[in-house]
Amino acid sequence: MIGFLVRRILAAIPVLFGVATLVFFILRLLPGDPIALMLAGAPADEETMNNLRQQFGLDQPLIMQYFTFLGHIATGNFGQSFVRSEPVMGMIGEQFVSTLMLTLASTLIAVVLGAVLGVISAIHRNGWADFVIRIISLLGISMPTFWSGILLILIFSVHLNWFPATGSGGFSRLVLPACALGLVGAGFIVRMVRNSMLEVINEQFIMTLRSKGLSERIVMYQHALRNALIPAVTMVGVQIGELLAGAVIIETVFARQGLGRLIVDAIMNKDFPTVEGAVLFTAIVYVVVNILVDVSYSVIDPRVRTSN
């Protein structure tokens, strides 16, 4: 297990290095002078601007800037924000908690809803329940989150006044954005669970369990679901990445604090170090989640454990 973990982590390093390089060069193609933007049109003489350029290392040749950048991230330092003149790492840490809460809450909604509906759909395959669930799950995938978010605000904030529409902090402000994001994830998971359940249901051990006289509920939820979960868990790994990125839009809709808002604002302000740091951080989280997903296989499936 330890060997497996080490191998996975070592394999991830070149990929993350590639991500860092890609983001660095994409951003350097941005038209516009970050220093001019930073001063926000305030009159400044050439000398002040040159001083600022020097301070942020923008006077160096691109290749030198790149190596400085690599040196920094290798030591866990994402540099200083151009706009707020504070360490990017601290800004990310501040915002990440909010995004993490959102991601976890929406994953929970997606997994619970997805697994239950997926199983019901598979048990009643080709029946009416299946038909309705498949249409609903497809609808979940097809709705843009910014629209479902706005509909939720319209219904539950404007009309029913149950939850506050915008802002961050507290459980009540988490419910609506988490639902908007979770519904999309649920749509994907329903489809995944349904397909893998259908595969498992036809296997012989299910026949054996049934002929043993176990109730259908136990056969389905304790045995079939557990076996059907493996492909679904892979899906959750991919989904968490999507949910993290989806936070970019949802946080804007609900005017929530978070990593997504940080990235959007930083891109608009040409705040290179913040964009680089936040995007790289998201990529790291994504990679870590997927390693955890691989580890979780062995918890769900004893066959994987013994083969290790």
Partner: peptide
């Protein structure tokens, strides 16, 4: 190279490129 692109979630990559 594809792995690197995969590590950046779609909307984030599109957002960065569109902004550039």
């Amino acid at each position: 190279f594809i792995d690197i692109l995969m590590t950046l979630p779609g909307i984030l990559l599109a957002l960065t490129i569109a902004a550039v």
